[in-house]
Design a binder for these strands. Structure first.
Lengths: 340, 340
DNA sequence: TTTTTAACCGAAAACGTTTTCGGTCGTTGC
DNA sequence: GCAACGACCGAAAACGTTTTCGGTTAAAAA
């Protein structure tokens, strides 16, 4: 089967490729009749423009790149979901890469995306990423970049995130209003910004309520994508503090669920003996027992918004308009369930 | 910043673009010294070949397309995970699309992938897909195609799947050995093959154990990606059969979890009053209460295998070798937990 | 000295599209 | 009758790469 290109259309109609091209793009200097003839033939022969040639000529790929730390995460799945929806509407393709929380891989993937000529990039950074030169490179290349959730404060680009500090402040504050006083915190890695902010929100809620901040109640879960980390730290928590702790606020639901598993197995009643509050509102949090209170982070909306901004910026760039970076805060919501 | 192309390398060295190109690709008719000079300069100037030009010239994109019904599913996330790993190793990019279980969208996405010139395609079909002309089109275009999990029997291409019939036979058989006799089944859509096969395995296990098959114990959950469907059908099940049912085997974990929720809320003890067995072994099945017995479907391995075969076929095509289609059955495993 | 050969390099075409810049008509205005 | 104009179309260059096919040297063979 011979590929149907502009040239074969042109030959069949006794026209030139330029005329055919212009006819298909509705140029004003082509006769309406010939336009129709060309368009009909194109349709009947199922002509589709060669994407490589277009890319080469127009310097745009109609592809955007997305790098996330991990695929198998409810939150990230939702982000992708939102991005795919927006891309679909605009006939853009999305190439997806996962960094596996590995900085070197993340860096390499940025290079690949740049060399493939993607029109824009959305990244949620790996936890360990401290060096942002690869992001600077994207900006140097003049490729629109959006950071989502796991962001870098110092990089000058649009960002979509939640107010981690406020969200966790609200959660802890809720616990305090409910009467809990000795509230432990399983925090995430020391590095990523939202881990820090969630910790700070936790601390501020304590202070604002005149509860002394006790550093020994804070556990660093640097492997926080693993729920066994939550299980083990729950064990440690009880070993360390015995009855002198009555609530637990975790940096994500996975840790909370690990902890719940430990408490359940050891007959530590939730929420009577200890309350638990998670973060991110994974689907499973609504179906475990006891169901877990959490913070709805709205991954889908974050993905959608990121993509919207990205396409805006791509368009602005195309029109040579200056682009001004946005920082969008997506609303969160306390989801109160039976664990507190 | 001027883009660094073969031409600028050539100019800087007083060579021709052809020589530079050949030097970079280690052609034998280029002097070792000049090769070195070229390669050094290329590295120092950070030369990366233009992907569009390469695609145009070589007719290959180093991109593969993946279409899945839905992103936010543990099983599909795992498939993607496996595919991304394999692609990463081979420096291939993956463009991801989700059909949202919509046939028309699936069809359109195939067209987009074809028009973009991807080197291969992996699809897990939407449940409602009954017409396979879009798949035939892929084969017509001579693009390697792999079907994974949700397959079409009549399409002649490589497939990666599990033995749904055997897996569900084993699960139901296990229930029977445990003494359960009135086993209900929440089946999926009437259309997709694996929904059918899981039903047939259920039926055969009953017959082989001399248990009469009772059609009234089978409920069609045509919206089986929604766990409320499980909840509602559990309600119906109890209304219909009261105490005359002692086990439930569902076509997936989500339905099982919906049912468990209903049973828990209505004080129907699991597994004493009714046992529950799921399918797919979602992560959350291990953390709900009671934990759910299920069938490990090994999504990651399915994704990996699909990608491996795809890249094999792409390579074969490249070498003009004939490709012979494979049908790979991935092992499943009964995961026994507290729900039975 | 002349011919052959090997070693090295470059010219050029091709992939398919887009867009600028003219060019050729026939028509209108004066 | 001539200039000007508008309508329509095509030639050609460009995007960056790959690869074939010669071509130019200098050294080896005759």
């Amino acid at each position: 089967m011979p590929k149907v290109t502009l040239k074969v259309l042109a030959n069949k109609l006794g026209l030139s490729t330029s005329t055919v091209s212009k006819a298909l793009k509705d140029y004003s200097d082509i006769n309406e009749e010939t336009k129709l003839k060309v368009q009909e033939l194109a349709k009947s022969l199922n002509y589709t423009p060669n994407a490589f040639a277009q890319g080469l000529r127009n310097q745009e790929s109609k592809i955007v790149g997305v790098i996330i730390p991990s695929m198998v995460h409810y939150f990230f799945s939702n982000i992708i979901d939102g991005i795919l929806k927006e891309a679909e509407e605009r006939n853009y393709m999305v190439v997806l890469m996962q960094s596996n929380e590995d900085y070197d891989l993340e860096k390499k993937q940025v290079d690949v995306l740049l060399s493939k000529g993607v029109d824009g990039i959305i990244i949620s950074l790996a936890n360990k990423t401290r060096d942002f030169s690869h992001l600077a490179k994207i900006i140097d290349y003049n490729i629109p970049l959006i950071l989502v959730d796991k962001i870098a404060k110092t990089i000058n680009c649009s960002k979509v995130l939640i107010d981690d500090r406020k969200a966790s402040y609200d959660a802890v504050n809720y616990l305090i209003q409910k009467g809990y006083k000795r509230i432990a915190h399983f925090r995430g890695d020391l590095n990523p910004q939202n881990s820090i902010d969630r910790f700070l929100g936790y601390k501020k809620a304590l202070l604002d309520n005149n509860i002394e901040f006790d550093p020994s109640l804070v556990y660093v879960c640097d492997n926080n994508s693993d729920f066994s980390d939550g299980y083990e730290n729950a064990e440690k928590l009880i070993a360390d503090h015995g009855n002198n702790v009555d609530a637990l606020f975790t940096v994500n639901d996975l840790l909370a669920i690990g902890a719940i598993n430990y408490f359940n197995e050891n007959n530590i009643k939730i929420p009577e003996r200890i309350a638990v509050f998670g973060f991110s509102n994974w689907f499973m949090s609504s179906v475990i027992s006891p169901s877990l209170s959490s913070i709805e982070q709205n991954g889908t909306k974050m993905g959608e918004k990121s993509a919207q901004i990205l396409f805006q910026e791509i368009e602005s760039k195309h029109k040579q308009k200056p682009i001004e970076f946005q920082k969008v805060i997506i609303d969160t919501e306390l989801i109160i369930r039976k664990s507190c």
